[in-house]
Design a binder for these strands. Structure first.
Lengths: 157, 157
DNA sequence: CAATTTATGTCAACACCTTGCCATATTTAG
DNA sequence: CTAAATATGGCAAGGTGTTGACATAAATTG
């Protein structure tokens, strides 16, 4: 029976992929919960943490548009409307109309937002250490590579 | 200057962890969107897909309680109330009170639910193939191992 | 230049997820 | 056996995510 080998391979591959996606779903659920818990005293969710991180990067001093944030975080513009509204109300960001294009708004970090970003760094570092106990940097890099391939494939489709 | 080596290592480790979590957030956003899109004609979300998968496993013929599903999927009981309500309305699952414990409900797949689970398999296989183009099984197994470590660490905290 | 097309951000409706609270049922303690 | 503690599932409020529809602004086309 010369056929079973490839059939077994396919079946194994499918089971592995199945497990991979299931673990991804599980992991992200618990990451959002645990991450938000780690920043509880600052009243910042993992999503707001991502936005603060995006706006704090070198080269983003002038701010980002909603579209740019949407492309960067891979969430819809419409979703950002809500998140940015809450962050604006909290005083972490400001929306200012671009004088050169009345449609777009520059989202910038306020001084308060920048200060909060600095303040949460120790909690974030602790969160990383606790979550990744026993995971070496090489494994992390391999996972990053897989995720980037995954994202690339999905963007194409 | 004998100190810089370890400081550089820490900084590199932090940057790597940072990127890992950011990619995880990005990836899951696009996975949920693309996955739900792949099952669009069946009107099933990635979450409902997870529930169908959980109830279709060998050994689950007798159903699972809400608590068991909650432990398995790593989401809250309260969240499942909503998801299961929608799936019940769609006719995919049934909730029946456990005669031996009036508090708990056995969640079981209906015949219609089992049929849908069979029907979506080709779409799921296609989704796996498209998403994981260029990613070999070994890389997937490494990522699974990392995610399981991550989940284990977070459950402990 | 006027008309159409495209781009940007928002609103609305709905699914998903969390926490806090509660009713009911079971178990444990006294 | 009764009273307290615990377990199970659901309700409510609010943040996060999606798609569809929309107003307005800019760019393109005739």
């Amino acid at each position: 029976m010369p056929d079973t080998s490839s059939r077994h391979q396919d079946s194994s591959q499918h089971d592995t992929s199945n497990k991979l996606f299931f673990r991804l779903f599980q992991a992200v659920n618990i990451i959002h919960r645990t991450g938000t818990q780690a920043l509880k005293e600052f009243d910042i969710s993992t999503q707001q943490w991502s936005v603060l991180g995006a706006l704090s990067r070198d080269g983003c001093e002038g701010g980002m548009t909603v579209n740019e944030l949407s492309d960067y975080l891979l969430v819809s513009r419409q979703n950002l409307t809500g998140v940015l509204g809450r962050m604006e109300r909290a005083g972490y960001i400001a929306r200012q109309v671009n004088p050169r294009d009345q449609r777009s708004r520059h989202i910038t970090l306020t001084p308060r937002g920048g200060k909060v970003w600095q303040m949460i760094q120790p909690a974030i570092a602790g969160f990383y250490r606790a979550s990744l106990q026993g995971v070496d940097e090489g494994q992390q890099l391999q996972t990053i590579a897989l995720l980037e391939d995954l994202i690339g494939n999905m963007k194409r489709s």
